[in-house]
């Protein structure tokens, strides 16, 4: 698909993805029993090799929860936190005082993975309910590493199809910004094709 066609398709996909993200962040708030606010989603079509620059550059260290969308349509969901923020999120989820978690370990990764699972499930339910897509989410992978290495498996997967990626990016956090993260969705081309079919275009 050409860049101009991708841009034409972006609107319907972004509206759907943002509804899914709002549902997912609501799911996180329900899980943890605290309020989360969200930033207006940033959505764009951009050269794939520039995507790591959106997250502090390829060398920035992050903690990421990575899920793949599988089934009738495929893509990638990535939740990105600063490592220190990921520790706080684990403390909140475990009902521990701030500062208790100083290293994720198996338990911390499990907690972040479960949070990712809940958010992924809410997001995909919107895709399923609103667009009739039969999709599931893979088990989460939690990794603390450089942005470049966290993203490049997903970016390589997208690069097989095109030089450009559609990226939907929504920030979320507690009202005091004590905890904040980024919710990223990178759809494969097939999701956009499926949406076209679903809407009869």
């Amino acid at each position: 698909m050409q860049l101009s066609e991708l841009q034409n398709e972006l609107g319907s996909w972004v509206r759907l993805a943002e509804r899914g993200m709002i549902e997912a962040i609501g799911g996180l708030a329900g899980l943890l029993g605290i309020e989360f606010t969200m930033r207006q989603g940033q959505s764009r079509v951009m050269p794939i090799d520039e995507v790591p620059n959106l997250f502090g550059g390829p060398q920035a260290e992050v903690t990421a929860v990575y899920l793949t969308i599988i089934g009738e349509a495929e893509g990638h969901i990535i939740l990105i936190y600063e490592p220190q923020v990921a520790f706080k999120l684990v403390d909140i989820a475990m009902g521990e005082p701030h500062g208790t978690t100083t290293d994720l370990g198996e338990m911390g990764e499990s907690v972040l993975g479960e949070i990712g699972n809940v958010m992924g499930a809410h997001f995909l339910r919107t895709l399923s309910d609103d667009a009739g897509l039969d999709v599931q989410v893979s088990p989460p992978v939690v990794v603390t590493d450089m942005v470049g290495s966290v993203l490049d498996g997903a970016l390589a997967d997208l690069m097989i199809q095109d030089d450009h990626a559609v990226i939907v990016d929504m920030g979320f956090g507690t009202p005091t910004e004590d905890v904040s993260g980024r919710f990223i969705v990178l759809p494969n081309q097939e999701i956009i094709n499926q949406l076209k079919r679903a809407s009869g275009q």
């Binding site: 794939i48 090799d49 790591p52 550059g57 390829p58 450089m146 470049g148 490049d152 970016l155």
Partner: peptide, 24 residues
């Protein structure tokens, strides 16, 4: 050197860097 780029050089005072190689 970013994703999918390459650099060829004979400058002895140059350092070429690839950040954040994962599956790459």
């Amino acid at each position: 050197v970013g994703l999918g780029d390459m650099r060829v050089s004979a400058d002895p005072e140059e350092e070429i860097i690839c950040y954040g190689l994962g599956s790459c």
